[in-house]
Each structure stands twice: as C-alpha cells, then as structure tokens.
Computed example of a mutant assay.
Amino acid sequence: MGFYDVIQQWKDFDFERYFAEVTDNDVLDSIYKEKLTEYDLLNLLSPKAKNHLERMARRAQEIKTQHFGNIISLYMPIYISNFCTNNCAYCGFSKKNHIVRKHQNLEEIEEEAKEIAKQGVEHILMLTGEAHGLVTLDYLKDAVKVLKKYFNSVSIEVMPLEEWEYKELADIGVDGLTVYQETYDEEIYDKVHLSGKKKDYHFRLNTPERGAKAGLRTIGIGPLFGLSEIKKEAFFAGLHLKYLTDKYLNSSFAISLPRINPAEGGFQPDHPLDDITFVQFMTAYRLFQVKADINISTREIASFRDHLMHMGITKMSVGSKTDVGGYTEHDPSTCQFEISDNRSAEETIQAIRDNGFQPIYKDWQQIK
C-alpha cells in the first residue's frame, strides 16, 4: 500500500465535526502520551489545542532535547538554475513569469561554493528550477562533484527523479533530498499546477519513497501552506511523515512548514497560516514524530525564528540567498521568493548561541 492509499482512507473523514468535538482533556492527554496515534495528531491540530500552546511548546522542547540534545544544525541553500518548464500559479520561477533567469556553468557554481564555504557550514542544499532538458541528470551530477569538494553533506531540491537517478546521485555523494508536495489536495494540486511535468500529482507524491529506496540518508517533506485548508494539509503532511518513518528505517526524515512568501507573479494565498497556528502545527509535529527533524527556513522573520528555537526545531538555514549567483553577486537572477530573515550566516549563528543552543556546522562524515 502506498501513501496515496492512506490519503484515500481519510478522504471522506469529517474533519470539521471531529475538531468540533475535541475537548481540553483530549488535547492534554495527547500532549503527554508517549506514543501518539493519528487521532492524537488531530487533537493537537484542533482549534481547542490553541488553549494549550504553552504546554505543547514546553513538551516539544523536552522531547527535542531528549532525542537531539541542545543543538541546531545549520545548512545553506545554493540556487544554480532558475529556468523552469512548469507553469505553477504560486511560484516565482514559473515559466509564465518574465524574470531574470540564469543557468550556472560549473565554474560559476564553484565560485559560489567557495564563497559559501567561507562561512564554515558543511551542509549545502542545491536547488534548481524544474527545467527538463536543461537541468539534466548529467548537469546535476557535475554540479554535485563540484560541491563535494567544499561541503561534507550535499542535499538536493530539484525536479522529482526516478529511483535509478537518485541512486546515481547517491553514488557520487548526494545524501539528502527535499521535495515538497505543495498540497495534498489532489483537486487543488491540479488547479495550481497549470502545465508541465509537475502537474503529475502521483509522481511527485511518490518521490520521497523513490529517494528512500535509492538509499538517501535524509529526506525532507512538507506542504506549502496557503494553497489549501491548512489543518487538513498539516494532518496529511504529518501522516506522510509517519508513513515514511515507519516504512523506511534506513533513512531519517524531516518536515518543514513553508508559507507562501511574496514572489514574482503576485500569487495571493487563499488559506494563510498565521504565526500562532504555525507554532501549533510545528509543536504538534514534534510531539507526533519525536525523532523527525524539524526545519525552519529564512522564509520566516528573524525574531520569529529566534522564538521557534525554543520549541523543538532541529535545523535552520542561515545566510540564505534564493537567487542564482546571489552569494557572489555576479549578475544575480530574480529570487524565487523574498527572504524574511536577512541576517548574515554569522549573525544567525550568534543568535543561536545567544539563545542557549549549540550550532552544528557538520553532524556526520561520509566514509568512502
């Protein structure tokens, strides 16, 4: 049974009726249980749970400290191409947008890598637009070989690939994959993905599994909050995390909570996620899947990210640029979306220390 079958099992569930019947005692029971079920996750995502956010936050930090210690791992993104053959209503890279586009050659990628490496962060996330025919497997492999000269860990956030393609990338040193489903609602997915290969809902939904089968060490998932009803999105993302964690024991899994930020094209979300509900969802994930990483990106403002450090997160991006060529500032392209935390890597790392946590530049070593 695949995860789509899990979605179908819950398709006709009356979420609003369930949420309306959740009591304070239901929420409290779910906060302090050792092993949570899907119904406990629903309790923690319910409106009633907002009465107990302080308890959820304290419990989340206790669990995080128990399983991860007093650390926050660091990573930096590198965008190497922003060409795209998809037409997605919400994305700044969509082919419909008339933006400054750039596709780096290997020399330019190496120049960016050298600049990023000065920060000392050993985890890099390589991103591209989904430009089929331009961003080829060979191009990705050549770029990874360049990045591996400067970084211990290279993860990718590119177009969904086949299992054999992930295996070839893993063989040359890629150890992580990030792929967001954007929305788990199949009808809305079809409406916001107007054309291009990304329109294939099922191929994207099964991408994390293909990465796990290929032997990738870490895999990150998440919805893009704003496209569909937020409590349902949060629930299905949590179910997806549980499904993957239970089925693929040789990979570790992470979840993110990206919100739609201003981008080229001016897309306005129908279902915005406010800060309080963001905290509710994030702490619910920590209680529901105690060993999962929780990642917070620079989509969020600096003061909010500093606040979230005390609520169970384990990973943060630092000093991010979302434009191709952004670190060297040589003919930079249009950004995918606007960064909200504009601090330098050094400033963010100092903030992590000031909040009482240990920043981790490198948390594993690949043995050839």
Rank of each mutant, 00 (worst) to 15 (best):
E21F: 10
D12S: 13
E182A: 02
E168L: 08
M1K: 12
L257W: 09
P359G: 10
K141E: 15
A237T: 11
H307Q: 12
L74H: 05
K247S: 14
V279W: 01
D185L: 01
D40Y: 07
I63R: 01
Y189I: 05
E229Y: 12
E54L: 14
Y166S: 04
K198E: 13
D142S: 14
R353V: 15
A302F: 09
E182G: 09
E21R: 14
D190Q: 14
L205I: 01
K198N: 09
H98I: 10
F15V: 04
G92M: 08
N51Q: 10
E122N: 13
N250S: 14
T23G: 09
E163A: 06
I221C: 01
M311A: 06
L42W: 10
S256V: 06
F225E: 00
F236V: 02
I294Y: 00
D270H: 12
I116G: 07
K118W: 03
K64T: 02
S46Q: 12
R353S: 07
Y248A: 06
L28Q: 11
F267P: 05
I360Q: 06
Q336H: 13
T207D: 06
L194A: 04
L205F: 00
M282T: 08
P47V: 02
A284T: 04
I172L: 10
F93Y: 14
N152Y: 05
S252C: 04
Q61Y: 01
T136G: 10
L42Y: 11
V324D: 05
S344R: 10
E209A: 09
P359W: 12
M282H: 03
E34M: 07
K197M: 13
E209N: 05
T322V: 08
T65N: 13
H310W: 05
E107N: 12
C91V: 11
I31T: 04
I7D: 00
N25D: 15
N355Y: 08
L257S: 01
P77G: 00
I360H: 00
F15L: 15
D29N: 14
R210H: 03
V192G: 09
A170H: 13
I219H: 03
K242D: 05
G2H: 15
T85I: 08
A89L: 15
Q104A: 01
S320F: 04
M1F: 15
L137W: 04
T85M: 11
R299V: 06
Y166G: 02
E264N: 13
L224E: 06
Q366H: 13
I156C: 02
P258D: 00
